[in-house]
Design a protein around this nucleic acid. Structure first.
Length: 578
DNA sequence: GCCGTTTTCGGCCCGACTGTTTTCAGTCG
C-alpha cells in the first residue's frame, strides 16, 4: 500500500475544471457544466484544505458543492480517481480539450469538427484547414476558417508566454494608456476597470472605460497609441487591441449618464456580478452594463457614477478589492470595513542591504525609508546558512548590529533597528545561537531550502522559538508558476495564534505571501499580520504597495496589521512584551 | 449539478459581437 498525498485545492480545482470541460464536449447541458466550473472556483478560493473538509464530511458546506460532488471528491481522495472522469477521458480525446481552451473556440464548434471531420487535435485542425474541409463545413464558411487559423496561430504563440501579467506590469501599461486617453481633447472620463482595478495578483487583460464627445476620435487615438501593437476589432463604441507587451486591452465608450453602470460592470469580478444579478433578479430587477431595469414598471435606471448603481439596488458600495462574492454583497451600510491603506504603514520590518544580497547599503536603505515617511526600519539580512552566497556569519551579524546602532545615533526622529531573516533549517532549527538572536530587535524566520522536508512542522517549530517575531513568506509560492510548498496554512495560523508570532504578507509582487485567502483566515483567527517590502534595494521599498493590495483583498483594516503601530507600541506586542 | 422567506422542481446573469444566417447559434467577458 502506498501512501497517497492529499490533492491540493489547486489540483482538485483542476480536476473539476476538466470534468466540466469534458462534460461540455460530451454534450451536457450548460448549467451542469457551469456547476462544475463554479465548484472549481469555490475550491480555488477556499482558505483551508478541501481534502480535509471531504474527510471531515463537511465539504457540502462550501457553496457550489453538493452531494454528487462530495461523492466524486471522496472517490478522488480514496482511490486517486473519479470513475466518471476516467470514462470521459476514454471517450473524449485530450486534443479536444486543448482546442476548447483556445480563446475563440468553444465546445460546440470543436465537437462538430470532431464529429464531421475527425479533428481531434490542433494538428488535425491545421490539416483540415489546409485541405479546405473546414470552410466547406455547414455553419462554418471561409471567414470562420480564416478566423480559426488565426486562433491556432495565436495559441501557438501564446503557449511560449505566461498567460497572465503580474499586477505591477499590467498597471504600468494600463495607467499609461489611461493617462494618454485622458489627455485626449475628446475624452471626459477614463478609468481602468477589471481585475487591475481590483488589485488582483495578476490580470488576463485590461479594461478601459470612457466617456467622450467624439467617441470615434477617441477610438482612433487609442488605435494609434504607441502601446498598441494590433487592433483586433473596433467600432463606434470601442475597440479591442493587443499591446506590445502581449496584454490585450478592451476600450469601451458610453454616454456619461451610463458611466457608473459600465464602470461597475467592467470592474467585476464575474462572480460578484453574477451574485449581484441573481439576487436582483429574484426581486424583478435586471442588471446589466446598460442600466438597471425594473421589470414591473419598465423603468430603466442609468447611473453616472458607481455609488448610485449600488444605491439603486439597495446595496452598499464596497471598494473594488472586495468584489469577489466573498460576503461583500451582504454588508449593510456601516459594516463595510475601513480597508488599510499604504499611508497607514509606519515602518518596514523585512528588507536586505549589501550585508547580504541587497543593492543598497544600510545607510542608503535608511535614507530611502525616511524619504518614504517611515518612522522605523529593521535591517533583516539573510543569515549564516542562506546557501545562495552572501551569507552572514554570527560574527558579521554582531558587527552589523554595531553599525546599525551607530547609524541610528545619527538619525533624529527615526528608529533604525537590527534584525535578521533567519533560515529555518531542515529540522526546524535556526542558524544563529539563541543568545545572538535574543540581542536582535526583530527576527524574521523563513524557509528557503528543503521544501519537501515537512515545512509545516519546521515553521511551527520556528513559531515556538522565543526570539522569532515573524514568519516570512509562509507558503513560499512564486508567481506566476512556482506553487506554494506543501504547507498546512491553517496549522501555521493556529501556531502563530498560540505563540504570539506575527505572519507576513510579503509585498514582493511575485510573492504576495500570505495570499488574500490565508491573510483573511489569519485575521479571523486573531493573528496580527505584518506587511513588508522584502526590499533588495532602495526602490523596492515601494513593494509594500503590493502587500497592501493583498491585505485589502483580505478585508484587513489598519488594526489587523502590526506595523501600522509606532515602534514602541509594536515592540510591546512582541512575545513577552520585550 | 446546485439550490430554495415566492420553489424539493425548475430554474440557473446579461448583452455584444460575429458569422452564418432568413431568425439564430456560438463565444466571450
Amino acid at each position: 500500500m502506498s501512501a497517497r498525498r492529499d490533492p491540493s485545492n489547486a489540483e482538485i480545482a483542476a480536476v473539476l475544471e476538466e470534468l466540466g470541460d469534458r462534460y461540455e464536449l460530451d454534450g451536457a447541458i450548460g448549467h451542469r457544466v457551469n456547476a462544475y466550473r463554479n465548484a472549481a472556483d469555490a475550491v480555488r478560493s477556499a482558505p483551508g484544505s478541501i481534502a480535509a473538509l471531504v474527510r471531515a464530511g463537511t465539504v457540502t458546506e462550501i457553496p457550489g458543492i453538493g452531494a454528487t460532488l462530495e461523492e466524486k471528491l471522496t472517490d478522488l481522495l480514496n482511490t486517486g480517481e473519479i470513475p466518471a472522469l476516467t470514462k470521459l477521458r476514454a471517450k473524449i480525446p485530450a486534443g479536444l480539450l486543448e482546442l476548447t481552451r483556445m480563446r475563440g473556440l468553444g465546445a460546440k464548434r470543436v465537437r462538430k469538427l470532431w464529429d464531421e471531420l475527425g479533428v481531434d487535435s490542433p494538428d488535425a485542425l491545421r490539416a483540415a484547414l489546409a485541405d479546405g474541409s473546414v470552410a466547406e463545413l455547414k455553419g462554418f464558411g471561409a471567414s470562420s476558417a480564416a478566423k480559426i487559423q488565426a486562433i491556432l496561430d495565436a495559441a501557438a504563440e501564446q503557449a511560449s508566454q505566461p498567460q497572465r501579467t503580474l499586477l505591477p506590469r499590467a498597471l504600468e501599461i494600463g495607467e499609461a494608456l489611461r493617462d494618454e486617453l485622458r489627455a485626449h481633447p475628446s475624452s471626459h472620463r477614463v478609468e481602468l476597470a477589471g481585475s487591475a482595478r481590483r488589485q488582483a495578483e495578476s490580470v488576463k487583460d485590461l479594461d478601459l472605460i470612457a466617456t467622450a464627445d467624439d467617441a470615434a476620435a477617441l477610438v482612433a487615438a487609442f488605435a494609434a497609441s504607441e502601446f498598441v501593437a494590433e487592433v483586433q476589432s473596433s467600432g463606434p463604441n470601442g475597440a479591442h487591441a493587443s499591446t506590445h507587451a502581449g496584454l490585450d486591452v478592451d476600450l469601451r465608450i458610453v454616454p456619461p449618464a451610463q458611466f457608473g453602470n459600465l464602470l461597475q460592470h467592467f470592474t467585476g469580478s464575474k462572480a460578484h456580478n453574477v451574485a449581484l444579478r441573481t439576487a436582483a433578479q429574484a426581486r424583478g430587477i435586471r442588471v446589466s452594463e446598460r442600466g438597471i431595469l425594473f421589470e414591473e414598471t419598465g423603468e430603466l435606471v442609468r447611473c453616472d457614477d458607481e455609488v448610485a448603481v449600488y444605491e439603486t439596488l439597495g446595496l452598499t458600495w464596497v471598494p473594488p478589492e472586495l468584489r469577489e462574492d466573498r460576503g461583500e454583497l451582504r454588508l449593510q451600510a456601516g459594516e463595510v470595513p475601513t480597508l488599510i491603506e499604504l499611508a497607514d504603514l509606519r515602518g518596514d520590518l523585512h528588507l536586505h542591504s549589501t550585508k547580504s544580497d541587497g543593492r543598497g547599503t544600510i545607510g542608503e536603505m535608511a535614507l530611502a525609508a525616511i524619504q518614504r515617511g517611515h518612522e522605523y526600519l529593521v535591517i533583516t539580512d539573510h543569515s549564516a546558512s542562506h546557501g545562495f552566497g552572501n551569507h552572514v556569519t554570527a560574527d558579521e551579524l554582531r558587527r552589523t548590529i554595531e553599525e546599525v546602532r551607530q547609524i541610528n545615533e545619527q538619525l533624529d526622529g527615526f528608529e533604525l533597528l537590527a534584525g535578521s531573516e533567519v533560515n529555518i533549517g531542515s529540522t526546524g532549527e535556526l542558524d544563529y545561537p539563541d543568545d545572538l538572536l535574543a540581542e536582535l530587535d526583530w527576527v524574521v524566520a523563513s524557509v528557503h531550502t528543503a521544501f519537501g522536508n515537512d515545512p509545516t512542522a519546521r515553521i511551527i517549530a520556528a513559531c515556538e522559538h522565543p526570539s522569532v517575531d515573524l514568519i516570512g513568506h509562509p507558503t513560499g509560492r512564486m508567481l506566476p508558476d512556482r506553487p506554494a510548498y506543501d504547507v498546512d496554512v491553517p496549522a501555521i495560523i493556529a501556531a502563530a495564534s498560540r505563540t504570539g508570532t506575527f505572519l507576513e504578507i510579503n509585498g514582493s509582487p511575485r510573492r504576495r505571501d500570505l495570499n488574500e485567502f490565508h491573510a483573511r483566515a489569519a485575521k479571523d483567527a486573531g493573528v496580527l499580520l505584518v506587511i513588508d517590502s522584502d526590499a533588495h534595494g532602495p526602490e523596492t521599498l515601494d513593494n509594500q504597495r503590493w502587500g497592501i493590495a493583498t491585505a485589502r483583498r483580505a478585508w484587513l483594516t489598519a488594526d489587523d496589521v502590526a506595523n501600522t503601530r509606532s515602534w514602541e507600541e509594536l515592540r510591546a506586542l512582541r512575545k513577552g512584551g520585550r
